[in-house]
């Protein structure tokens, strides 16, 4: 029998969030995907979810969810869990969903596996969740009991797919939201215009060094950062040389960063610089000098001229992004 998998779908700017759709598509492959959408825009979002794999959508279009964090959603999901026993709650890993998942898990004693990059049901219909651990290990885990479990998927672990022509059955939930759960109130939402690179928070950093030759060439670094959705950074050498303000500097002095991807362009890799970025998950380095120390920490090293490689790479990334 097909497994029933619930996906909590978040709404971003009036549309289903990409991270939710990734998970929804995966759920649709694993079994019967059912989506839950909460919040004032829920009703408008719900009908489109069939196309992304949902067979059924539970909707509760109430603005309370938009103002009060976590608890109203936990209550609603909890009520729903009293009525039905899905096999799995497969949620995206986002700021809000993490909080909801943690409380649901505690309230219903549900096993909780986070940071999944893949999951499947084996022949005996046992769930197998793949979780990378540290740099060296991959763990395969399961919920060792009958009943519902929770899995949080790593962002971008799955791709969004379209299930042409699929129509989701829509069920309006009639729950009464409890006033005592309306505690964590959002008073204000503030968008922060990023001034200069938000290096510490960026998950992708493109950084430049003296190998760029001239200050004008730094714009290639900025451009690549922009197309990748990352932030541009710099070595002490070019900050010292006055190409860029100090806020760009990465290194022992300067900022320490740990992005998922670090692209070092024309950086030789003095220890002062390495100290600030070697915690990056993936490091790509482009440098003319094949003996440059940066290559000793790089996952992918290109021995070549940054001024040739960067323009090509910018175009290639643009091209592939358009295809996604």
């Amino acid at each position: 029998m097909a497994k029933t998998i619930w996906v909590l779908v978040e709404i971003e700017d009036g549309r289903p969030a990409r991270s939710s759709l990734e998970v929804l598509s995966k759920a649709a492959h694993l079994g019967r995907a059912e989506a839950i959408v909460l919040g004032s825009a829920a009703a408008t979002v719900a009908p489109s979810l069939g196309e992304f794999g949902a067979e059924k959508v539970y909707v509760h279009a109430d603005p309370t969810y938009d103002t009060y964090l976590t608890l109203p959603a936990v209550d609603t999901l909890s009520d729903l869990l009293q009525r039905q026993q899905p096999d799995l709650l497969l949620f995206p890993t986002t700021y809000d969903v993490r909080d909801i998942a943690a409380r649901l898990s505690a309230r219903h004693n549900l096993g909780l596996i986070t940071d999944a990059t893949d999951l499947r049901y084996d022949e005996s219909e046992r769930l197998e969740v793949t979780v990378p651990w540290g740099g060296e290990n991959v763990v395969v885990a399961t919920h060792p009991y009958q009943g519902t479990g929770i899995v949080l998927a790593r962002p971008k672990a799955f791709s969004v797919e379209r299930f042409e022509g699929r129509q989701a059955e829509i069920e309006q939930l009639s729950v009464t939201l409890r006033p005592e759960s309306q505690q964590m109130k959002i008073l204000d939402r503030v968008e922060v215009q990023s001034e200069g690179p938000a290096l510490e928070d960026a998950s992708i950093i493109v950084s430049g060094g003296r190998g760029l030759g001239k200050p004008e060439n730094y714009r290639l670094v900025e451009e690549l950062a922009t197309v990748l959705g990352g932030a541009p950074g710099a070595t002490r050498a070019i900050v010292d040389a006055g190409w860029l303000p100090y806020s760009y500097q990465i290194g022992q002095t300067g900022k320490t960063v740990k992005p998922t991807l670090y692209i070092a362009c024309g950086i030789s890799g003095a220890i002062q610089h390495l100290a600030g970025m070697k915690g990056s998950k993936y490091i790509v380095a482009i440098n003319k000098d094949e003996h440059a120390p940066i290559f000793s920490v790089a996952d992918l090293g290109i021995v070549g001229d940054v001024l040739t490689v960067l323009p090509q790479l910018i175009e290639e990334v643009k091209r592939r992004k358009a295809q996604l």
Partner: peptide, 20 residues
């Protein structure tokens, strides 16, 4: 409420693939 079934080696972080 979770059980580790197996622990495998991650795809060895390819030790610095350097390409010209």
């Amino acid at each position: 409420r979770e059980q580790v079934l197996s622990i495998g080696k991650a795809e060895a972080r390819a030790a610095g693939q350097i390409i010209k």
